[in-house]
């Protein structure tokens, strides 16, 4: 048997941080507000849970300043499940991010759903061992977040609405621009970088790979199995479901159904099978009737 020479383990490398995002592909990350919901999510086959005090639709309803969750609540959820636990910090609030890292959360979401703490700067995510996910509405925003160290991008959609229209708009915008980059000439890529307000080396990398250098998931408005199938077919690699599960009539059933639809997204007969008898999805909202659009937060 081999005696196993060992090098000193290296933590927090880009490969290790992006690696967890690769492992979450094809899965569903569910918003939960307590240990009981976290158990329901894990029982249904969630790949991870997002621990937060209020789901986006309640944040929207209540108004006021939305902040990082109470560490006690995050710890209770960590104790309740064996799958990865993510938590949100406010945009630019690096002290909240430091707290979340010290709590050993598995991923930090620097999220527009919370009230921004900084109107010009996002967190320097390279400074952390724990990986970050950030939202984006377009390719430039995605590349700026990656240049700051984000290891996963999620299209923002419009959280807490149960309305998929914004998620579709953002996915189509990001993926459409990536397709355009793949056929651009070298001099056009410099112009693209200026237009996107993104580093030219990242623009060149995306042009040659035909995709972002980190996994891209979809969030914001997914409320049914067919919504998950739609965004997966459009090119999302996994989905975040926020209010869509625990604001539906039968959360356990809805959660399982969205998990199956995300795996079998290209097989309409399976999506049909899991869509039967789900009860009411979360009540939705029209985008032009909203007081606040979360997706506009982020710079």
């Amino acid at each position: 048997m081999n005696q196993g020479q060992s090098s000193y383990p290296e933590v927090g490398t880009a490969r290790v941080k992006r690696g967890l995002a690769e492992m979450l592909r094809g899965g569903v990350i569910m918003d939960v507000v307590n240990a009981e919901q976290a158990k329901i999510a894990e029982d249904a086959g969630a790949t991870a849970v997002m621990a937060l005090e209020r789901v986006p639709s309640d944040i929207r309803r209540d108004g006021g300043v939305a902040r990082m969750s109470d560490p006690m609540m995050i710890e209770a959820i960590q104790a309740a499940v064996t799958i990865p636990v993510m938590a949100k910090c406010r945009i630019g609030h690096f002290a909240e991010a430091q707290v979340l890292q010290s709590l050993d959360v598995d991923y930090i979401d620097e999220s527009e759903v919370l009230t921004p703490a900084d109107e010009a700067h996002h967190v320097d995510k390279w400074a952390f061992t724990v990986p970050f996910v950030c939202g984006a509405t377009n390719l430039g925003e995605a590349l700026r977040r990656i240049s700051e160290g984000a290891c996963m991008i999620r299209s923002k959609g419009e959280a807490g609405t149960g309305n998929i229209v914004e998620a579709v708009r953002h996915l189509r915008s990001i993926l459409g621009d990536i397709r355009a980059l793949t056929v651009a000439t070298p001099e056009e890529l410099f112009a693209w970088a200026k237009e996107l307000r993104a580093p030219v080396d990242l623009v060149q990398e995306v042009a040659s790979r035909g995709e972002l250098p980190v996994p891209m998931f979809c969030a914001g408005g997914i409320a049914t199995p067919a919504d998950a199938a739609l965004v997966m077919q459009l090119g999302a690699q996994a989905v975040f479901v926020g209010s869509g599960i625990f604001k539906s009539e039968q959360p356990e059933v809805m959660a399982k159904a969205i998990v199956e639809a995300t795996t079998h997204y290209a097989d309409a007969s399976i999506v049909a099978k899991v869509s039967r008898g789900l009860g009411a999805a979360m009540p939705g909202a029209e985008i032009d009737k909203l007081d606040v659009t979360f997706a506009d937060r982020g710079w």
């Binding site: 048997m1 060992s6 490398t13 990865p84």
Partner: peptide
């Protein structure tokens, strides 16, 4: 948890140098 995730060089029986980077 994720903060303890790591990479390290591995010696794998039957593979010649260089070491295999284990993630």
């Amino acid at each position: 948890r994720q903060r303890q995730s790591f990479e390290a060089d591995l010696t794998i029986e039957g593979l010649t140098a260089p070491a295999f980077r284990g993630v």
